[in-house]
Nucleic acid binder design. Sequence first.
DNA 1: ATGCTAGATTGGGTCTGACCTTTAGACCAC
DNA 2: GTGGTCTAAAGGTCAGACCCAATCTAGCAT
Lengths: 250, 250
Amino acid sequence: MSDARSAIRLSPMEVPKASDVLANELRERILSGEYPEGTPLPPERELVVQTRMSRTTVREALRILEVQGLIRIKAGRAGGAFVQKPGEESVASSLDLLIRGRQLRLASVHETREAIEPSCARLAALHRTSGDLRRLEVTNEEIAASADLDDFLRANVDWHIAVATAGHNEILTGIMMALSRAIYTATNTEGFINAEVRDITVRAHRSVTRAIKERDADAAVRRMMRHVHSYAAAALEVDDRTTVAVPEED
Amino acid sequence: MSDARSAIRLSPMEVPKASDVLANELRERILSGEYPEGTPLPPERELVVQTRMSRTTVREALRILEVQGLIRIKAGRAGGAFVQKPGEESVASSLDLLIRGRQLRLASVHETREAIEPSCARLAALHRTSGDLRRLEVTNEEIAASADLDDFLRANVDWHIAVATAGHNEILTGIMMALSRAIYTATNTEGFINAEVRDITVRAHRSVTRAIKERDADAAVRRMMRHVHSYAAAALEVDDRTTVAVPEED
DNA sequence: ATGCTAGATTGGGTCTGACCTTTAGACCAC
DNA sequence: GTGGTCTAAAGGTCAGACCCAATCTAGCAT
């Protein structure tokens, strides 16, 4: 009420939980690179005496780090918590949760993919090794040889991930893995894959692969863009036929 | 031993942990949309009697879901676990862990950004609302008015995130948030921001904003691409001066 | 020597039951 | 109204026990 009272202002304060404190401490140490990959953390009971926290608390902290992909926990003698650098999968799985949890429009996924894959192709053309190239060719053969829908989709995903991998950019690779997984599950039920689609796909992949082989970045971008775009258009069309159209707000 | 015995064959089996079982069950239910956002889960002690697991186990399961961003846990009376759809932040933080944990080259971050931002600009031009537009203009004014380096960087990040938001694609927005955060911390120490850089930035943002305003997707892409590319080049040049060059393998 | 099996050991996983802390709400006193 | 005080609900922490899994090792059989 009085002026003197309202002069003092405080922002809401956080009182961290004990397990969070421990988790944060360990996380910072791990991220700082202080412990190389594979370093074993002390056993839980040892952490208990060091931190003077209860085992429950210690275990919660470890669980947090495990879910974040910073440690891997093995049971049994010579088991324990081992430092682990987070990999692409953790990004992939969190994107997966976002997509599934928000029930995002398939269109968002395709939009993102159209944004990313051409760049992956570009980087692949620039940085690919001969091993990368062979992997591209092998996976594309698998697509051509695929028997049923599921084989086709899986091999298709593999090829696209191979492109991302060949670009040697972990971030883009992680994102692509997540998107592929989402598209895989989304496209699986729809029956829009027939022999013709498969042939078109294989041909498109071949032409992209050729550009990557010849280190022709611009062509790789162009061809990949066209391929992804037409795939997205086809998938969305099928989707429109199956689901009710939702009007966009503006 | 006998032939009859060897006829029965089993493959290696996985024995999941109890807490994972519970976590998976709850996760599937949440993701299926069965519980709308904000729905309270039963209290821990109630889950104990329902599942016949111990409270420890129940709590571990809840902790997992909390870290994955699927529930939010409040203490105190009327507290408990509330269903929450995972947001952009969870993607952002996992990307953050990837970047920091792997000590990724700044170049990867910039590559990714160059892949994504032009597309964000394109989508923004297509889908922006008038509110989005105002936010773009406001944040850009803040950049122009920024006093010190930190102000500048924060406002800069805000503008770029505003572009992503205007595209109305949650996936791209999440990724951009993570990248921005990484670039923010990376560029912070370097002293490469001066009045000239700031002016160039503001002008570039203005021209992108104009394209978005006029719903000119192609121009938005082009201008954003140029802007991001030159920013990346400048940042990398500064980075080269400060850090030792690491030879690329091929 | 070789090879295998039966402990012994180490370490995570689960359970129990208790107590502490935080928060919302109600009621009361000034 | 403002501020205490109490109570109930719920999560947070603790201590201790026991269970289960993985590994190592010593000893036995061939």
